[in-house]
């Protein structure tokens, strides 16, 4: 199993632990991922008003991946959404394909294969039973709230995952690792990420509701798939506590960090010391130093 890996800008910045745990986890599972050379930013959520620019920026990355001959893979929900959009645009409309390739100049994007999200690869291709077989440290007793957020599951024709209204792939992954996925009503709600820099009050309000439900259902941690969700739920958690005068103390792990723990990796190898909210309560419960 070999993929062209598009990490996205945040893996060099706020989501460095997401990048570390992706490499560690894929290494142990025997999934060969090779970072594509000289990729650019997909424009994240901030490029959305200008869809032509959004498609062209993502098409450049997809074109680089296409040259490698291996299917493209990412772990960032936003990069996944943006590159998927470029793939569907060139496949659905000749006009869009010409426009996009005009912007690419000396490069060419054919749109041969859709980008995959690592979570989808693990569940649909690798197989959860094969992950379970590699578990060295069962997460038995750990209660985990699965949080899908927006762009991994919506819009449904772009995400193409199991059930757009009540997805299960993250729940099933958590269970396959020996942990318990708790029913989580807010699992597909929005963290408010794109409004953090303009309407912090609204963003904090949305994230507070997610974190409070995790506390109320007795989860030991939240598990996420998107680096923007991490900014709100983990990096901003103290700010949210301050704004509302509440205590949350909810560890927020990337799904790759959770898998890595079950595969027997040391917390440091997974960047668990880089999460803003301490993950010590989780590792302590698992008996890991």
């Amino acid at each position: 199993m070999k993929f062209s890996y598009y990490p996205g800008c945040v893996m060099h910045g706020t989501a460095v632990e997401f990048g570390m745990s992706t490499l560690a986890t894929c290494g142990t599972l025997g999934i060969d991922i090779v970072e594509i050379p000289d990729w650019n930013c997909c424009g994240a959520l901030e490029v959305y008003p200008d869809m032509y620019l959004e498609l062209a920026l993502s098409a450049r990355n997809a074109a680089i991946a296409e040259e490698t001959g291996f299917p493209m893979m990412t772990t960032c929900a936003i990069c996944f959404h943006n590159v998927s959009k470029a793939y569907f645009a060139v496949n659905e409309s000749e006009k869009a394909k010409d426009m996009i390739n005009d912007a690419l100049g000396d490069m060419k994007y054919e749109g041969k294969e859709a980008i995959r999200h690592l979570l989808d690869i693990l569940v649909s291709d690798y197989g959860l039973e094969n992950i379970t077989a590699k578990v060295k440290r069962s997460l038995d007793g750990l209660k985990v709230a699965p949080f899908y957020g927006c762009l991994l599951a919506r819009p449904k024709e772009i995400a193409r995952f199991d059930d757009p209204e009540n997805p299960q792939f993250l729940d099933r992954l958590i269970d396959a690792l020996g942990a318990e996925s708790v029913p989580f009503e807010h699992k597909m709600k929005c963290c408010g990420g794109s409004l953090l820099m303009s309407r912090e009050d609204l963003a904090h309000h949305l994230s507070r509701e997610i974190l409070e439900e995790a506390v109320n259902v007795g989860a030991d941690c939240l598990v996420i798939t998107c680096p923007m969700c991490n900014v709100l739920l983990d990096l901003q958690q103290k700010e949210i506590e301050k704004r509302y005068g509440i205590t949350l103390n909810m560890p927020v792990l990337y799904f790759t960090q959770l898998i890595g723990l079950a595969l027997g990796h040391k917390p440091k190898e997974l960047g668990l010391d880089k999460n803003m909210v301490s993950t010590a309560s989780v590792t302590k419960k698992l008996g890991v130093g």
Binding site: G13, D38, L53, A103, L104, D273
Partner: peptide, 27 residues
Amino acid sequence: MFKKGKLSLIPKNIKGMKQIKNIFRVV
């Protein structure tokens, strides 16, 4: 964030800046 290597202090350019400029020129 800085201690954990989550903040970079210096921006760096990708090699394909000519292609990025071309995208902005066409779009």
